[in-house]
Structure formats: structure tokens, C-alpha cells
Write a protein that binds this DNA or RNA. Structure first.
Lengths: 200, 200, 200, 200
DNA sequence: GATTAAACGAGACGGTACGTCGGGTCTTGAA
DNA sequence: TTCAAGACCCGACGTACCGTCTCGTTTAATC
């Protein structure tokens, strides 16, 4: 299954890192979030548990990194020439990813440890938050191209629109456990596009 | 099935039940999700830990029930006479609830145990899923009144619209850790209302 | 198996008592000591758990009474006309009983609750102790008949001899888990009889 | 399999092991069997409860090992030059040990878990059984020396005699809760010695 | 034959201990 | 320096079973 993973007893740096990340994603996919234990990851990666802790510090960090890297790979930003098509493709990929055990894990990781951000302001590094912001910013080009193309009015807020669409999928798939098929995505894109064109 | 007359045990049971649920909500609010331990809940409720396990079986069940009952109480369905206003009020309340530690807990509870729904179909009872469905159905009257009033075209799908709006808040608040102020809610309502009026 | 046990919903006194005792012995035989739970006994006896506690107070009391009554029934005092034969029969029956799960339970019940008799003197009722004393006294007639018959010198201590023989079986069967066959019993009787005849 | 050199983990392990065993014996002596809780043992040994479970698996295993090691230390095999004296010393020590809370615990530990040995044959490791066998074998030299010395006929069975004497003490002290003073031990030795010399 | 007290059914609860799980740390030896 | 190895710490979860409590209900003896 996994390509011959060299285990020369003492591998170094990047090799260990990648092996662990791969093992994490695999376990996430087969065992789910709570079934993904650091010890198991270590065994599967052919690495000692201590090494994992040395590098990532906590289980949450490890999983977060694994999941986010996976999402980056699985949900690319398309460029088909059509705003509508771009969004459909993007959201379909997102829906597919979220339906995955790996994707499901994302929603359960909490901002940093638990809900540390109890006080109004975000005081520390919040990897997940930053990730979403980065992700939305990346995807914003799809909207931007629509504006440039004249498909959309120039005053729309790209991130806002994407947040609305992504959020719908998030809620439907992750919270409600319902599927988001092509038709659903289509209606969603239509709704938001129509709203964006006529609002204000 | 409902006992014709509430036996004394039932009466005592109900008292215990409520005390535990209240204690859970309180701890959720002050200690956060991971800080809410069954033992502490029991102490605070003046009840023995075993009684909690007898009734709810697992920590997750307990917290789920507590959170959901709380949300029902904190996010009522308004009826102001204006569709726009109804939605604004509803979503503002939802946003406020989600920003709460109690609300935050909701997104981290997973469908039933972990991600048990690995196999395509939902095979068991999934309290959270059912809850959202019920919640959206309840709130659908707001949209329906808009249709009756002529505010919205008759062919819109109430749950779909609510899912889109609720999802946006969900993603923004719970995943991104950003606030959703009144203005944000406003724009969201505008977007979806405009989309609903002109799409298709 | 059990003869039609009348279960007219609310049985009284002696009937309940006997049903519970029977159920206890049965469970002891099939499930062993630690597998004999009060709740199970109650179910099997067709009686409510509370009734068991009302009557016997503690699990230990219940089991003790059940075991002792059983031993009285299973290990009768014989009278064959021969001292040697009497002892052989008696000890063989005892060995058989001790090899039983029910018999095995006896050695694990402790004097009263735990080891309450830490202080030198026995301060309370110790049913098991009394039971053994009574049992040895009963069986002493076998020795006494031997004395009367001239088989044994008049100054031997009946209880002492029985204690030695019973103890050997006890240790061998209950502690060592070894069988005590007819030959073993025979040698034991020979040893003690020979000792009693020639000592002092 | 035995590690050629004790690794540091082993060294630390041994320290923990001894501390736990000591703590167990102490608690056994002061609190009795049922008062000896794993948690308390751990605290007293300055070790975490989990470490105890890691090593011994169950409370029973722990206590068994503690008790048996203690008995080995408290009941040495004497060599006074006189068979009668050897036996008296040996049995007196045994009686003293059995009268101890620690000794008392021995009789209540069951063969392995409960009465698992329900089926005729001993299918697994039964530490207590093996212990007694080893103990009797050790003590057999006392009898053997008696034979060599001409005190006893050459065809007597050493273990058999010891079992008889040990069993008497066992029954008297552990089951009947009665004391076994020096005179009692004396009579017991006399009885068995006389029997052994003249029987058959 | 109605009344009443003792015994029983029923079900939840209190309480204590056992054992499990998994995240995370520490020490030492070796590559 | 990094990693392997293995025991440990720590804290929470969940389970098992004993025994108690309250109250409704039945039964048997009494008036």
C-alpha cells in the first residue's frame, strides 16, 4: 500500500516528518479522529512516540498540520474561465473533503487547545483560524476574476461570499451529517451569485 | 409509554435530571468543554457521579443534551412582522450563542461518538443531526411567513436559506474564531434575501 | 429443572426465604463465589433485590447461610460400626463438598466482614467459626464411639483429631487445588488413628 | 530473554517494584485485606496507581505476590538437629504468620481470579497452588533429615505429613479463628510423628 | 368483611473501588 | 544532536456491585 518506506533505524529530519504526517493522514482516514492515537501514528510511521512529541509537541498540533496539508492538496483553486463553474468545482471539492473522516476531524479540533479564546480577543496563535483566512484569501481570486470579467459588481466582498458558501457546506455536512450533492452545490452557487449581483 | 401518573421515583428523577443539566451548562460556560468533567458536574449538582452515568451513559451524551436544551432556550424564533427583522434577530441570537463557550462546545461533539458515521448511511440515532433538522424546521416559519406575506417568491426552500445563513455564522465564529457583529448579520441577511428573490 | 416454583407475585416469608437460598446455592455452583451477585440471586429467586437485603442484610450473610446449610446436608455424620470406616466416609464426603464451587466459597468468606478480628479476642458473632465448632462437635461422636468401643484410648481429644484430618483436606483442596482421592483419605485416617493410639 | 545488562529502566523498575510490594505488606498488616486498596498502596509507595496496574494487572496479583514473598521471609525452614524441634519451630512460625492479617489474607485470595479452576484440571498458572507446593517441598528436608537420622521410617511421605500439620493450623486459625499456642503445636507434632512411626 | 401492619415490588440513588485509556515526560544508551 | 526504548506520571472515563431510600401495593392476620 504505502510505497516501501525506508526504515534505516535512524532516519533524519524530513524523512521522519513526512512518514509521521503520512501515517497520521492514513489513520485519520481509517480510524477517525478519536481513533488516531499518537502511539499508533508512531508505530505506523516506524518512529518512536517521543520523536513525535519532540517535533509537534501535542497531538492536536500534529493532527492539525496533517489535516490542513491534506486539505490544501485536496481542494485546489480552479480556473475554468467561468465564475460559476469555478465556484461549483471548488465547493464540490470542499464538500467531498469535508465528508471524509479527515475533513470531519477539522471541525472538532477547537481553536488551539480547548476553547482557550474565552476572553474576547484572540491572544495566541490559532492555526486553524489562520488557515481558514489563508484559504479564503486564496480562493478569493475566483471571485476577483469574476469581478474583473464583469460577472459581478466591483463592490462585492470575495471572502464574505466564500464564507457564506463554505459555511453552508460546513453546517450541512459536519453538523447535520447530510450529503451535499452536485445539485445542492449548484443551488448554493446560484443563490449567492444572484444575491451578490442584486444586493445593495 | 408515558407513565400515566408520575411515580415518586419519576419526580425525584426529574429533579436530579434538571440539577445535572443545569450544572453542566454552568460548567460549560465557566470552564469550557474540556474543563467540564463528569465528576465536577456531579458535585455541583449535588448528585453522585454514578447517577450521571446511569442516566446519560457517557459524558458526550450529557453535554450534548445540555447544550441543545440551552440553545433551544437561548435562540427563540421571533415574529416581528418583518421577514428581514425576524432573520436578523434570529441570526443575531444564534451568533451570540455560538460565541458562548457553551455554543462552542456544540461544534466539537461529533456526530454521536466519534465519527461513527464512517459508512455512508447514518445507521443510528444521531442526536445532533436531528437537533439541527428540528431547529431549521422550527425556524422555517420565518421564511414561510415571508412567502405568505409576498416578501419572497413561493418556490424558495426555507431550510436551504436558513442553512446558508446559519452555516456562514457557524464557519465564521466556530472555525475562524471571528466575531459576527450586527453589521455582518445584516449583510448576510441582505445577501440571501436578495438571492432568494432573484434566483431562478 | 427446579420444580415449579410458585410465583404468585407476592409470596410470603418462608417461601421467599427458601427460594432465595436455593437460588444462591445454584448460582454458587454455576458461577462461583464472585459470580454470585445479589441482584442475580434475586432475579433467579423471582424476588426483589430489596427483599434479600431486608432479610439477610449483606451478601456475605446470605452466602454464608446458603453454604453452611448446604454443607450440613451434604456431609452427614455416618455410623457404620467401624471407626475407621466412619472417618473415611465422613472425610470423603467433606472432600467432595470442598471440591465443589459451593465448598470453595466457604474458605473465602472471612471471619465476619473482613478480618475484623484483628484484636485478639473475638468480639462479635462469627458465624463461620461457630459453624465449624458445631460441626466438629457433631462429628466428635464418631471418635467417641471409637473410644467406647475400645478402638481408641480414652484420653484422646476428638475435636483435635478431626481438626487435623479436616485441616489436611482443607489445605490440600482449597489452597493447593489438588484432589483428595479415596486413597489419600485412607492414608490420612491411618496416620491419625495410628498417632492417636500410640501417642503419649 | 533475561536482559544481559539491567537497563536503567530496569533499575528504576526494581525500585518501584520493591516500594510497591513493601507498601502492600504494610497496608495488609494495618488495614487488613479488604482495606488494602490499590490507590492507597500507590500513594504509600510514592508511585502512580497506573504503574501498579501496569506491572501486576490486578489487585489480586499484587497482593498475592506480596503475601507470598512475606511468608517466605517469615517462615524459614529451621535446622536444630532434632526432628521434633524443627517441626515445632516451623509450625509455630507458620501459626504466627497465619494469625497475622497478612497471613489471613492468604486464605481469601482464591485460586487465580475466583474459582476459575471449576473444570477438573488446572489449566493455567495458579500461583498460590505452586507456592504451597514449593513451600512444602522446601520444608520436606526437615522430615528427610529425620529419616536419615533414623527418627522416622524410610517410607514416610514428607509432604503428606507436612500437609496434615499445616492443614490443621490452617483450619484452626483461618477458619475457626482460634489460637494455636505452643502446646497445640506440640500435640500436633506428637500426633503426626507417632502416627508416622507406627502406621502401616 | 373491613381494617391495618408487615412484607414485598419497583426503581432510582449513594458510595466505593476497580480497571482502562491515552496524552505527555523523563532517563539513558547508542548512532 | 537526534532518535530508540521503556517505564512513568497524570488525570479523566467508564464499570461493577454493594447497599439504601422512598413510596406504592399486596397479603395476611385482626377486629
Amino acid at each position: 500500500m504505502t510505497p516501501s518506506r525506508p526504515t534505516p533505524s535512524h532516519r533524519r529530519g524530513a524523512a521522519v516528518r513526512q512518514a509521521v504526517l503520512d501515517a497520521t493522514v492514513e489513520l485519520l482516514a481509517t480510524e477517525g479522529l478519536s481513533g488516531t492515537r499518537v502511539a499508533d501514528v508512531a508505530v505506523r510511521a516506524g518512529v518512536h512516540e517521543t520523536s513525535v512529541y519532540r517535533r509537534w509537541g501535542t497531538r492536536t498540533n500534529l493532527i492539525l498540520e496533517a489535516v490542513l496539508s491534506r486539505m490544501d492538496a485536496d481542494v485546489p483553486v480552479p480556473d475554468t474561465g467561468s465564475t460559476r463553474e469555478d465556484l461549483t468545482v471548488l465547493l464540490t471539492a470542499l464538500a467531498a473533503f469535508l465528508a471524509t473522516p479527515t475533513g470531519r476531524a477539522l471541525s472538532r479540533l477547537g481553536l488551539t487547545p480547548d476553547d482557550a479564546a474565552q476572553n474576547g480577543a484572540a491572544q495566541g496563535a490559532q492555526p486553524r483560524s489562520e488557515f481558514w483566512t489563508a484559504r479564503l484569501t486564496q480562493a478569493a481570486v475566483v471571485i476577483q476574476r469574476g469581478i474583473d470579467r464583469g460577472d459581478l459588481p466591483p463592490d462585492v466582498d470575495p471572502e464574505f461570499l466564500l464564507e457564506a458558501m463554505g459555511g453552508a457546506l460546513h453546517l450541512r455536512i459536519l453538523q447535520r451529517g447530510l450529503p451535499a450533492d452536485r445539485d445542492y452545490v449548484s443551488r448554493l452557487v446560484d443563490l449567492v451569485l444572484a444575491g451578490a449581483r442584486s444586493s445593495r
